[in-house]
Computed example of a mutant assay.
Amino acid sequence: MLNFVEISKGCAKVLLLVFNILCILIALCTFGFAVVDIRVLRQYSEEQATGTVTGDVIILAASLLLIGVATLGCVGAGRENVKMLYLYVGFVMIMVILELLIAIYVSVQRFGLQFRVTDWIREDFYRNVTAEEQDQHDDLWNELQITYECCGLNGPEDYVALGHQITLSCCPRAYNARTENARKLLYKSCVESMTYYKDGCEEEILDILRSDADWLLGVAVISFWFEAASIVLAMWVSSHLKNSVQVYRHTVKY
């Protein structure tokens, strides 16, 4: 006859292992996102991105903690160790609270960053720069326009309104050309055929910041449900193992 209790325990162990492996994968993806995001935020001034970078550092630490806790859950389930499973449940409950606080902090910082970046990018685009600052200013906007595939603040018309030529970085093929002659020919063709970037950098950057915030929020929600399910499964497995030990001791005793 089938032992449904043992079968259910085995299924619960497998699901617990699967959920913990998924949590580890999510933590690794989040860790990678935070590393990349820190590099991207360096394009903005330190004053604008300080709080958000701090949020990314906290995300890095939380990702490492989640990997450690999930690994503990896998080991506890694999070895059928009741004490490790109870310890795992306690750590997961703490992680859920920490992740909630981190999600709130990061969301607030991301929302504030959108306003700070908007003010900064508008001021920087239209500000009068000295001859010494010109190269640094051009390098910044070249990097922004190539990275976000945009041109000007609200579009290439901004350069026309200021009486300037559309910058070379608005034409990616010309900007990436290896020789000066090829660069000039490709730039001329780009301007004449109007194949330069049409979207403004302000909206493109804000779209990226919004999508990053939405992605982090989605990860937090998914992690919460995985962790909640893991708590239930770990409690079920540990309770069953504890009962099995008690039954075994009672049988041996009598």
Results as ranks from 00 to 15, higher is better:
residue 110 R to L: 00
residue 20 N to T: 10
residue 79 R to E: 10
residue 110 R to N: 10
residue 32 G to R: 15
residue 185 L to G: 00
residue 233 L to G: 06
residue 140 L to G: 01
residue 94 I to F: 15
residue 52 T to L: 15
residue 55 G to C: 03
residue 95 M to F: 07
residue 193 S to T: 07
residue 120 W to M: 01
residue 149 E to P: 03
residue 118 T to L: 03
residue 132 E to Y: 00
residue 169 S to I: 11
residue 103 A to G: 13
residue 122 R to G: 08
residue 71 T to D: 04
residue 145 Q to C: 00
residue 151 C to W: 13
residue 99 E to W: 02
residue 33 F to L: 13
residue 69 V to F: 09
residue 3 N to W: 02
residue 62 A to R: 02
residue 111 F to Y: 06
residue 101 L to A: 05
residue 110 R to G: 11
residue 252 V to I: 10
residue 178 R to A: 15
residue 71 T to V: 09
residue 18 V to Y: 11
residue 106 V to M: 10
residue 92 V to D: 07
residue 36 V to W: 13
residue 172 P to C: 14
residue 111 F to E: 01
residue 145 Q to S: 03
residue 168 L to F: 00
residue 2 L to V: 11
residue 54 T to Y: 03
residue 75 V to H: 06
residue 79 R to F: 08
residue 100 L to Y: 15
residue 155 G to D: 02
residue 74 C to S: 12
residue 61 A to K: 03
residue 213 A to Q: 14
residue 45 S to Q: 13
residue 183 R to P: 06
residue 222 I to V: 10
residue 166 I to E: 00
residue 251 T to G: 08
residue 43 Q to M: 13
residue 245 V to G: 06
residue 152 G to D: 00
residue 87 L to G: 09
residue 95 M to Y: 15
residue 115 F to T: 05
residue 136 Q to W: 08
residue 208 I to L: 09
residue 6 E to Y: 08
residue 207 D to E: 07
residue 1 M to G: 14
residue 118 T to K: 06
residue 237 V to C: 04
residue 185 L to R: 14
residue 189 S to Y: 03
